[in-house]
Design a protein around this nucleic acid. Sequence first.
DNA 1: CGGCGGCTTGATCGGTCTCAAGTACGGTGG
DNA 2: CCACCGTACTTGAGACCGATCAAGCCGCCG
Lengths: 226, 226
Amino acid sequence: MQNLAEIHSQSQPTRAAGKGVPASHSLTGQIELMGAPMAFARNGEIFGENEPADYLYKVVSGAVRTYKVLSDGRRQIGAFYWPGDIFGLECGAEHLCSAEAISDSRILVIKRSAVLALAARDADVARQLWTLTAKELQRAQDHMLLLIGNAQERIVTFLLDMADRGSGGDAVELPMSRQDIGDYLGMTIETVSRMLTQLENAAAIELPTHRTLILRNRRALRRLNA
Amino acid sequence: MQNLAEIHSQSQPTRAAGKGVPASHSLTGQIELMGAPMAFARNGEIFGENEPADYLYKVVSGAVRTYKVLSDGRRQIGAFYWPGDIFGLECGAEHLCSAEAISDSRILVIKRSAVLALAARDADVARQLWTLTAKELQRAQDHMLLLIGNAQERIVTFLLDMADRGSGGDAVELPMSRQDIGDYLGMTIETVSRMLTQLENAAAIELPTHRTLILRNRRALRRLNA
DNA sequence: CGGCGGCTTGATCGGTCTCAAGTACGGTGG
DNA sequence: CCACCGTACTTGAGACCGATCAAGCCGCCG
């Protein structure tokens, strides 16, 4: 039910983009016409590290995590993707990380070869592939800055990020587990939990459900964020 | 003196590439013809964060660091660049980090507008701009993985990296200070120093000079690295 | 109602930072 | 060539933060 609602709210702007497309979104528009929607169950693998990167992906509904697993078993989550986000785009022939659905998701699956062929003819499309990768780079660099802060700074930055990417209001649905958050921020679930409790006690946030976050004092959060 | 020698050893392969250019290096070849060499003194600023990204850069001799400074004064070094490396390439209009010469350096300075114009006409050049950014992304992701390890793992990975990028032998010149290393690895200079001493005591490395590193036991290092 | 998985809370341990001296090195001038 | 100085680096002691290990709690689903 919830998924169906999400599909509607997401696919409508998509169709609109397919008609009156601003130049800067032509890749998104043209690409989507080449894509086939697919359903992935919660925790289902979308692609694995070192697999051939024959496709790229766009989230229609649900949410996705990309990650690498280190030799000692630790898992580092590289990014979370929301409806509208494109992921799995590689310049080389293989995926550099794995991707899984965080919740039941619908994903547009797009043939890479078709996109590359288009890019070879259309400089505009080529530039947008480059732009997408540059955005990923910027995201990775911001993520690096996150990892050098202390636990509180990491959590606060993360929560503000989540809120910015959500509906815009103060209530945010967190589709990922505490383990996911920990693996994204480079800390244990215990520390994640403690920091959340601490922020709740400080009246900066509220957690009516484990997966529901309400920002109560953005100003205070931004101050802690420094 | 040393600089002149470096310029020679570096500029020769460059000239060779300008003549019989493999397709996959055409950007490097064509771009260099558009560049003007410039000298930067040790610690000299090459560009600053948020400045217009009108140029991109290629190290001829010396070494370069890119970094961001956080509001609380901490500095995070994003990458080190050696002769042959290209840096400062942005997809957007502004630089996202600052860049400084680590030692006295000669840098090829290339007009971005010329490169972009070329890319708009030549799909091959466009693809190589994309490839360069994708390489940066991969580097940033590896750097993230570095930051989640403990101090010993970070140092060991760093040293092995340095050795790989050096002449290939076991002796490596480290042009950067302990502070640079610390800001790259997200730790204090004291911890950097302690880890180096510890590795030296374990006979894994040797530090005849503060800036000279000799790997004595790569196997042991790789094991610590895990 | 029972059981399981995900989350929280508590106590302790260890690693890294911080603060504070001490030391070696490179450059400069006598 | 040596003495001097300043900077960069090393070493040490103590505090603090987050990891670890171990219970306990909550919500969910059968």
